[in-house]
Design a protein around this nucleic acid. Structure first.
Length: 164
DNA sequence: GCCAACGTTGGC
DNA sequence: GCCAACGTTGGC
């Protein structure tokens, strides 16, 4: 079982939006970065838990938890000329990009802002090494260590051991 | 809106 | 295969 952090701009798609979806489930489409794609394609498994991060908002931070309910399959928006995610190099033979399905799990009673994360990821801190607080880190999907996942849940006011 | 950091593209 | 130019991300 792996843990992840996934970024989304809440103006585009927020944790609340996910909660409002049918079965609280929605494809995570539009990933157009190879490193992020490879994480999805090679390492994401059904049941993996995800920190749902709101980017490009004030303040940025982790809003809650979702989980992987379907493993990687072709992202059809890459083949749709009308989609803003259209990629002319994608085709049925070579879909090029993949997506996964995620399901809403929990909203944090306490929003965990990027500032909070930074404070705890200082040298010697409980989140030392977490990728999201690294300078210049733009990757929209990053793996998260179990101990870091547990700590962020605690900061958010949720017990990681009670998630399902 | 600015811009640093990073990824991608394409000429050579 | 190098690298300049360009595009994007995302905090501030």
């Amino acid at each position: 079982m792996n843990y992840w952090l996934m970024k989304s701009e809440p103006d585009v798609f927020s944790l609340d939006d996910l909660k409002a979806c049918k079965k609280r489930t929605e494809p995570w489409d539009g990933i157009r970065n190879y490193q992020a794609r490879n994480f999805m394609r090679d390492d994401m498994k059904v049941g993996d838990l995800v920190l749902f991060y709101h980017s490009n908002t004030k303040p940025p931070g982790v809003a809650g938890i979702c989980k992987i309910v379907r493993e990687a399959y072709p992202d059809h928006t890459a083949q749709d000329p009308k989609s803003s995610y259209y990629d002319p190099k994608a085709s049925p033979d070579n879909p090029r990009w993949v997506m996964v399905d995620v399901q809403w799990v929990a909203e944090f009673p306490n929003y965990v802002s990027l500032d909070n994360l930074k404070q705890e990821s200082e040298p010697g801190g409980p989140l030392e090494g977490i990728l999201v607080t690294r300078k210049g880190s733009r990757l929209s999907i990053t793996p998260v260590e179990k101990k870091h996942f547990t700590k962020v849940c605690k900061m958010g006011g949720v017990k990681a051991s009670e998630l399902k």
